[in-house]
Design a protein around this nucleic acid. Structure first.
Lengths: 214, 214
DNA sequence: TCAAAATATGACAACTGATTCAGGTTTTAT
DNA sequence: ATAAAACCTGAATCAGTTGTCATATTTTGA
């Protein structure tokens, strides 16, 4: 028999430098095209035109439009996580890390708006990969919170619930202030007021502290 | 000239009881169909089949597939807000209202999962209506927080930022626990642990309180 | 009761857009 | 240098969709 066990659904990785370059061009073009036109309005034609190759070339590296979206989601996810990890090394105090993480996320989203659209649209094209994206993120997040709780840096509590809550918080703040509100994007410290509000919320909650009460 | 200022883009409201009934059937069918198949996979054919009418009838009441989605978004938004308002009347203490609101939202989402999908997909079909949905929600939310701050029930702070953060928090918790996690949906008080975690987070934050510290 | 208005029908025109394919070009390796 | 492998091309295919329309039925109101 001698059949290959795992037939790759993608047509095959490029075997030369030229191929690798072309594949990368197409992937980048897909990111841009999906980012501006959206997944459904963007045709394979638009992607290949943006990449400067013929339609047929697309199928040399990707078996379908859906597949390139999946590829893109994983790619963008890796890049974001790498970026955030790099930005948050300077402290290991959890609540400070939380602030830096939020600031970095907002800035990253303002600089890479396609991330948002590609990811959110992927949800309706391949729900599994969308879930996996956030489950992965949540796992890592909850682990960090658990570690902080063990070290006595934060209150005890359900850190899985908290992780999802914090992701949602970042997501919505990013959507509103990094993507929709143009003026918020100006300048290096544009997101400071937001980060500060969240810092207070996460440190102290909304209830008045002892001396403020009464 | 005597031109009508505001030409209705929708073909015209039904003028008989039968027409109103048919329109309502189609709208409901669209909600279900978009909810299960998604906006793009769902054809007008699927909607009319589910409604039990001919394809052509669709265009008696809606000028396009896009328009019925807009209609639906506004409709679902009104219903959700009405539901939440009704569920949160029993208290006027803000932090307690927050808990009740979250619980009601999670339960509502578990009971009306199409709300989520229709709304989120609308974002990529007509971004303006999606933004309007959340801006409206946020305005009301921020107003309530401002009132609570004036009454001295919560800490001072930027309540617009907080409103978006809290919406995101609810959104993600709903997505994860009301839609994705099947087991979480069982029973009346299924969401209690989540609400409790959030209650603690919103009241006290994550930092240790005075006596826990050290 | 009966003409006019409203509603319903479903076949179909017109179009879109993903994927295939047969053949050309470039690169690799001997 | 040259055969084989890899890569690229873009016109053609093909499946599916939205929205239209001429016609039929039902409801309204005088």
């Amino acid at each position: 028999m001698n059949t290959t066990i795992q037939a790759p659904q993608s047509p095959g990785a490029p075997k030369t430098a030229r191929g690798a370059r072309t594949r990368a061009k197409i992937l980048k073009a897909a990111e841009d095209t999906f980012g501006t036109l959206g997944y459904h309005r963007a045709g394979v034609t638009d992607i290949t035109r943006a990449a400067g190759v013929a339609q047929g070339t697309f199928y040399t590296y990707f078996s379908s439009k859906e597949e390139i979206l999946r590829e893109l989601v994983m790619d963008l996810g890796h890049k974001l996580r790498a970026h955030l990890a790099a930005e948050v090394i300077s402290t290991d105090e959890r609540l400070e890390a939380e602030e830096q993480g939020l600031r970095a996320f907002l800035q990253y989203l303002a600089d890479h708006p396609s991330l948002y659209r590609v990811l959110q649209e992927a949800q309706f094209v391949d729900e599994a990969i969308y879930q996996e994206y956030y489950e992965t993120f949540a796992r890592g997040y909850a682990d960090m919170l658990n570690a902080a709780a063990r070290k006595g840096e934060i209150r005890a509590g359900n850190n899985q619930h908290r992780a999802w809550a914090l992701m949602g918080l970042s997501h919505f703040l990013g959507m509103k202030y990094a993507l929709w509100d143009q003026r918020a994007k100006q300048g290096e410290d544009a997101f400071d007021p937001i980060v500060e509000t969240m810092s207070d919320l996460l440190r102290n909650g909304l209830a008045l502290s002892g001396r403020e009460r009464g």
